[in-house]
Design a protein around this nucleic acid. Structure first.
Lengths: 237, 237
DNA sequence: GCCACGTCGTACGGTTCCGTACAATGCAAA
DNA sequence: TTTGCATTGTACGGAACCGTACGACGTGGC
């Protein structure tokens, strides 16, 4: 498949690419290409989910909120996945928000259409539920990392996960936002970025982080990175 | 329903109680009552799941593990739920372990039988997937708590969740185990227990914690407790 | 009754991270 | 160029927690 079709066709989303021809044919008429701009909210907490998104490029964050407005990321979605896990679990909403963290493109399908399709096709349902399973593992590993990892380790983990999903070396994000993602204060991110930069595994510019040495990042992240990715491959690779 | 039947019949597990008569009839021949002893492992990481458990009394913990043997709890299961979420998502294993944290009773069904039943009955599948959804919310909230809550807050949250599931005021557990659950060292638990005891919301004895003031515990846990419980009620209550 | 072992209380220095504040730096609009 | 604003660097005391250690306490087995 050429770069151009990979960039624009259904194949650039791994889930759509893994669908059987009949299942893809079932969804195709309802899939609408979309540009996904920074901060676009795909799901709002406790509001009906209108559509599900299959990403081609860019990243979306799933963020959990708490009574006193503490917010923290519980998962990342890129071209390996989709939004709207809770729809697949039979609900039409969730207490989490999902929004674009890195601008990109994707395809959108109305919730009702996806519900109809997954009700009718067991193979489609099974495939998408496997993604939900891998997403649960990701969330669980986030819980471990939040409890046990130091900030530089958590940052390394996050950068690796982000890089997996955008596919390039350059990540456009501010320390402020990373702080939200990791659940630490902005100044703590700045220090961790400085640390990783000093170890020469990343290069930081204003609003941009460039991955220089992925292996090095993996070493720093240690066991906090990898298990969910391995599980994804087992389930869907 | 009398206390006795609640204690021993299918009705004492909230999921089984919520099943439609045909769905319950479908499962009933395969459900086998079991005593669930402390530390009994219902699921081992990356091993095929042989059976799914619907608890009547007692608590099970779902624990995630990491390369360097760091372990931490990502969810609690009691009579409101079931083990084996990943089976409902179409997998036959998961990277997590599930074992009994407080001795009790329950019913067991072979994985194959449950798979068959959920394949055939859409209503059964939908109900159980809603529980999976509520469990995901619980895990996500654990991720928040691990990142942001202080140890006494986390302990309060855990005790409330445990009390919801055992239904009494007395919880039999050691500080050592609580440390594993909360992802902190044993001595940290001892201090937090002392703190809560000093605030007169619990009473601690050797191997036992007694909840004296549930409202007080909820105040201490703050926003770290409640959202998953509310979500459970919305989905299944 | 005594011993052994699991459990708990407590202490210590050291590290990480917080909350906060303020200055320096880039970028973009006027 | 200048101005305004978002972003980043850095600093500070203080709080929370860690790793570790050791002694005290309870409970069950002998």
């Amino acid at each position: 498949m050429s770069e151009i079709t990979r960039g624009h066709g259904h194949g650039s989303n791994h889930l759509l690419a893994a669908l059987s021809p009949p299942d893809l044919a079932r969804l195709r008429p309802h899939l609408k290409p979309m540009n996904l701009k920074l901060r676009y909210e795909m799901e709002r907490p406790n509001k009906p989910i209108e559509a599900i998104y299959f990403m081609h490029t860019g990243i979306a964050s799933v963020v959990a909120e708490q009574a006193n407005s503490t917010r923290i990321e519980i998962g990342l979605i890129g071209r390996e996945g989709m939004s709207g896990s809770s729809v697949l679990l039979g609900d039409d909403q969730s207490p989490h928000s999902t929004y674009i963290q890195a601008t990109g493109t994707g395809e959108r399908i109305a919730t009702k259409e996806l519900q109809k399709a997954t009700t009718e096709s067991a193979t489609l349902r099974r495939l998408l539920l496997k993604y939900v399973q891998s997403f649960m593992v990701q969330t669980a590993h986030t819980a471990i990392a939040n409890a046990r990892a130091k900030v530089p380790e958590r940052l390394a983990r996050w950068l690796l996960m982000a890089q997996d999903r955008v596919g390039g070396d350059t990540l456009a994000l501010t320390h402020e936002f990373l702080g939200l993602m990791l659940g630490v204060r902005r100044a703590g991110v700045t220090e961790a970025v400085g640390d990783l930069q000093h170890r020469k595994v990343i290069k930081a510019q204003r609003g941009v982080i460039i991955v220089l040495n992925r292996k090095g990042l993996e070493r720093i992240a240690g066991g906090f990175y990898g298990l969910p990715e391995q599980e994804y491959r087992r389930l869907l690779g």
